[in-house]
Design a protein around this nucleic acid. Structure first.
Length: 818
DNA sequence: GTAGGGTTAG
């Protein structure tokens, strides 16, 4: 082996500067020879020389930390520099906690930590994400009087941020008098990494206002915040600034830009940038692959993954989350199985719970319910509710009750108060026409297990369990009930008939129903179950005959609500309709009496079409709380009445003056709108959306959360629900004092456009509304209109921030011209 | 003689 430190071979010529040779060494082999010479020549006693040795072993990429530790231990009284070097090295090692022990040893030995010690030990605290450690070191810093050192306080801000204590981080940051760009960057990235994009961008705005110019490190975090909060325009301005300033498009900055573009749906721009980047790392590939996958471009995502394999770039676990979710979106079951299998075998990556989650979802969607269940059982991790939920949804869609029962037990074991799963299961039983018996079995099992009871679910909600002492007969669709009959689950009064679907009486699922004629009334009492839940009812109305001139009303009442419904025609293809009704909000065990009765609107009862009622669904929801990403509650319309599982009709929502007592939680309803599900309509986001189906109708909400004078963005999606609705619609959007009309060109094929308006909040409450002024009819004569979904309200960082960046860009242009 | 800030998924 060649030895560059060849002068070692010529002792005892004048002793060369061994300490300098240590700095020039390339390997541990060379270093050990110098170490030996130092011992022989007693130079090891020289602290400076020993420090150089230590620095190489501890910090060099070709060093050896355990050798460094042994070397350190052999030194009789190490100085500050030596302690710091070893703490620094351990802080960035795989065991950063060792740095903290060293720091404690150092103090015990009587050494007062200096400013360097604090930066290194705080780095260790950051790497172990220990808030406790951070707080303790903070007190040491304060006592030592080093709390004015910018490096030290920067480390403190970073340490608090990564330990999820943004309040303390901000407090330390606020107390810094002469902030540097690095400190600003630390705080901005702290917010961005904690998914607090709004605060990150507000701070960035303040930074620009105070005259700091960002560098590429700052901008990487700003772009991350732009990606999270949908600020495409601001992100684009950052890109222009990066180009103007001539910042190098390194892997990190480039990845942040690619991610910002994909998150905002600008896939073409993301791909163009990705292709032009001189330098990429695995994160860049991940951002592009996941971006394509999440926007439904599964083929392109997989193509890119194959390109990555071809270029022999090593994927990581995040890459596989993206690739498997692409397979999941597109239903590529074989490719998914093959890639999942290759993770361990080819790349040595142990699949994590996220990867199993993708696979369970993929298998479930493709109907491989048993295989999905097997996969969950094979996992070393404890499956979470989300994963079981995905499997339950698959069971529901593919009608596998056997697996569904096992899944429900698992979910209830994890979340004893999760009642939604019983609803899913009972609906499945109903579909399998074996509900009563199975439900009894389930109830017994649940009671046996001492778990929550399923009593809050309505009994016999679709009247498929026939009244006692009565045999339904299709040739006699109406049978008058008398004192000898009881309807399972219900009590009745007045003129009530049991109805069987026939050629003249159409009913959901072609089953049975109840007609409430003169003074007819049914009621059922159930016990509210769960702490403070909101109850929303879906009820189905059918016409009571063909030869009648006047419709009667149906009155629904519960302790907190009262609603009057009459059958509306031309709002769907079927003669029967489902309506959403807000029932109330109750605490645990409250007895709720649900009463449904008929109400004549005409004096001539003989010509009245008494309403027929069928299929009642009860949905519960917790009180909505505001998330980080939307100042509006229920902006995605996910909290509304339940849908009939086989119905292509949607659920009609009638005027609801109060956003609280509304079946569409948090939204007042004006006129008639249709609540539509993703199973039967095109829904751009989530499982539900709104279609406005009457004239001058729509939805309205209001928020008191806004700061007067501040700018806000309202993003929303308008389009058509793929229900053969053709025409041009005008939707008037109001946000505070801003009113703007949007034209929706509908081909009825499921196309939508995302829109965004910016407005300044006034004092008091800010109204937000969507009103359609015209509707149309499909070829089948069904009223139809524009679709609305995904309404998001956020603080706007567009205006001021973009302006400030623009000023910086103009300044650069000027400098270039001059 | 020693130091600080960054990107990707969920």
């Amino acid at each position: 082996m060649s030895l560059k430190c060849s002068s070692l071979r010529q002792p005892p010529l004048p002793i060369p500067p061994l300490s300098l040779l240590a700095d020039k060494c390339k390997s541990m082999h060379q270093l050990k020879q110098i170490h030996a010479q130092m011992i022989i020549s007693s130079r090891i006693q020289d602290h400076f020389a020993a420090s150089r040795l230590l620095a190489f072993c501890a910090l060099s990429s070709s060093g050896d930390l355990s050798y460094a530790t042994r070397l350190f231990n052999s030194i009789q009284s190490p100085n500050h520099f030596m302690w710091n070097t070893l703490i620094r090295a351990q802080a960035s090692s795989l065991n950063p906690d060792k740095a903290i022990f060293l720091y404690m040893n150092m103090r015990r030995t009587g050494f007062a930590p200096n400013q360097h010690t604090f930066t290194f030990v705080l780095k260790a605290c950051s790497n172990v994400r220990s808030l406790n450690c951070c707080k303790q070191i903070h007190t040491h810093v304060s006592k030592s009087g080093l709390d004015l050192d910018l490096h030290v306080v920067n480390c403190l801000v970073r340490c608090y941020s990564v330990s999820s204590d943004l309040n303390n981080a901000r407090q330390v940051f606020d107390e810094i008098r002469n902030r540097t760009l690095n400190v600003w960057t630390t705080m901005i990235s702290g917010y961005a990494q904690s998914f607090r994009a709004n605060e990150a961008l507000m701070l960035f705005d303040q930074m620009l206002m105070e005259g700091f110019e960002p560098n590429s490190v700052t901008l990487a975090s700003v772009l991350s915040a732009c990606a999270q909060s949908g600020c495409l325009e601001l992100g684009e301005k950052v890109h222009v600034f990066v180009k103007m300033r001539g910042f190098e498009m390194g892997a990190i900055l480039g990845t942040a830009l690619v991610h910002m573009y994909t998150k905002n749906g600008a896939l073409a721009k993301a791909k163009a940038l990705f292709d032009s980047m001189p330098e990429r790392n695995i994160a860049t590939w991940n951002a592009m692959i996941s971006g394509l996958a999440s926007h439904g471009h599964a083929e392109e995502a997989l193509d890119l993954f194959r390109k990555l394999e071809k270029e022999q770039i090593v994927p990581n676990d995040i890459t596989f989350v993206g690739v498997l979710s692409a397979c999941c979106h597109a239903g590529f079951i074989d490719v998914g199985r093959q890639i999942f299998g290759s993770m361990k075998r080819v790349y040595g990556i142990e699949p994590k719970i996220e990867h199993y989650g993708c696979m369970v979802d993929l298998l479930g969607r493709c109907g491989k319910v048993l295989e999905a269940e097997e996969l969950i059982k094979r996992m070393v991790w404890k499956p979470d509710v989300v994963m079981w939920g995905a499997l339950l949804a698959a069971c529901k869609n593919h009608g596998n009750i056997e697996v569904a029962e096992r899944v429900v037990k698992e979910i209830i074991a994890l979340e004893p108060n999760n009642h939604g799963v019983y609803v899913v299961l009972s609906n499945m039983y109903a579909e399998a026409e074996s509900m009563k018996m199975q439900l009894e079995i389930l109830l017994v099992q649940v009671l046996f297990a001492g778990l929550a009871s399923a009593a809050d679910i309505l009994q016999n909600p679709d009247f498929e369990s026939p009244p006692t002492n009565l045999t339904p007969n299709r040739s006699t669709p109406f049978v008058l009930l008398n004192g000898n009959n009881t309807i399972p689950g219900w009590t009745f009064e007045g003129t009530v008939q049991y109805v069987t679907a026939s050629q003249t009486i159409r009913l959901p699922d072609n089953g049975h129903a109840i007609q409430l004629a003169q003074d007819g009334r049914i009621n059922q009492t159930f016990a509210a179950d769960g702490d403070d839940l909101i109850y929303i009812l879906t009820l189905t109305l059918a016409p009571g005959g063909q030869n009648c001139s006047a419709n009667a009303n149906l009155v629904v009442s519960a302790p907190d609500s009262h609603g009057v419904y009459s059958l509306k025609q031309h709002y769907g293809k079927e003669t029967w309709k489902s309506y959403g009704h807000y029932l109330g909000r109750w605490g645990q065990d409250e007895p709720i009496n649900l009463v449904i009765r008929s109400q004549s609107t005409e004096s001539d009862d003989n010509s009245t079409c008494w309403p027929v009622i069928d299929m009642l669904l009860l949905k519960t929801s917790k009180t909505l709380v505001q998330g980080n990403d939307n100042l509006l509650l229920n902006g995605g319309f996910e909290f509304g009445p339940d849908f009939l599982s086989n119905s292509t009709e949607g659920v009609l929502l009638e005027s609801a003056p109060s956003p609280i007592q509304s079946a569409l939680q948090q939204w007042s309803v004006i006129g008639t709108v249709k609540y539509i599900d993703s199973k039967h309509f095109y829904v751009p986001k989530g499982n539900a959306a709104i279609e406005i189906v009457s004239v001058s109708a729509g939805i309205q909400t209001a928020t008191t959360m806004l700061t007067e004078g501040s700018a806000y963005n309202l993003d929303f999606t308008l389009g058509d629900a793929k229900d053969a609705c053709e025409g041009m619609f005008v939707v008037r959007v109001q946000a505070g004092s801003l009113v703007q009309n949007f034209t929706v060109q509908s081909l009825g094929t499921g196309s939508v456009i995302k829109h965004s308006v910016t407005f300044k909040a006034g004092s008091g409450s800010t109204p937000i509304s969507f009103i359609s002024y015209n509707i149309n009819q499909t070829k089948d004569g069904v009223f139809c209109g524009p679709l609305i979904d995904d309404v998001v309200l956020r603080a706007s960082h567009g205006f001021k921030l973009q302006l400030r960046l623009e000023i910086l860009i103009y300044a650069l242009v000027l400098v270039a011209i001059l």
